[in-house]
């Protein structure tokens, strides 16, 4: 009798079943796959976006081309200095590259989508407007008129 009792007390904690663990993890996986987007560009310039309240969400991400403007990252400062620079795709660029960049972006879309293409300007808040204006003039020349000043959304003041 005493022996039997001791056996039951030993067995009282059954192992936790991990059979449903894959399901839980898969659920998490799908959540992240759906709610996130692939990191597209590696930033070579530092961009702290300015704050704004009247922000609209950027739609149709596949039709958006990005232009980054800001100070080069510390790793590149020995080569490029600290003046704000333009980054297109993965590399530093000059003003004159913008036209080719827009042309290349258009090439990769179908004709019907071209009027809906947007250029998103991701500009560091401490940049002077001079370079931004130059970029805007180049975009006008390239006939890429839909632009979007990228900002962070803040709550109403």
């Amino acid at each position: 009798m005493a022996r039997f009792k001791s056996r039951t007390t030993k067995k009282s904690i059954p192992p936790i079943s991990t059979a449903s663990l894959p399901d839980i993890v898969f659920m998490l996986l799908f959540f992240f796959m759906v709610s996130t987007s692939m990191r597209k560009n590696e930033l070579k310039v530092q961009v702290t976006l300015p704050d704004a309240t009247e922000v609209k969400k950027l739609e149709k991400k596949s039709l958006v081309s990005y232009i980054f403007i800001g100070e080069p990252m510390p790793a590149y400062q020995s080569k490029y200095g600290t003046e704000p620079m333009i980054q297109l795709n993965d590399q530093f660029a000059t003003l004159n590259d913008i036209r080719d960049y827009i042309a290349a972006e258009r090439e990769s879309r179908s004709e019907a989508e071209i009027p809906f293409m947007t250029t998103s300007l991701k500009v560091d808040e401490n940049t002077n407007m001079g370079i931004v204006t130059d970029v805007k003039m180049k975009l006008r020349e390239a006939n890429a008129l839909k632009i979007n000043y990228s900002t962070r959304k803040t709550l109403h003041k």
């Binding site: 993890v25 998490l28 996986l29 992240f32 796959m33 709610s35 996130t36 987007s37 692939m38 990191r39 704004a52 009247e54 922000v55 609209k56 969400k57 950027l58 991400k61 958006v64 947007t118 998103s120 300007l121 805007k136 975009l139 006008r140 006939n143 008129l145 839909k146 632009i147 979007n148 000043y149 990228s150 900002t151 962070r152 959304k153």
Partner: peptide, 22 residues
């Protein structure tokens, strides 16, 4: 899961849409 956590971002792009004059 970890692969997707590392390679993706969650930030929603927002901003002020504007049309430049031709």
């Amino acid at each position: 899961l970890i692969f997707f956590l590392v390679t993706t971002t969650m930030d929603v792009d927002g901003g002020m849409a504007r049309k430049l004059p031709p």
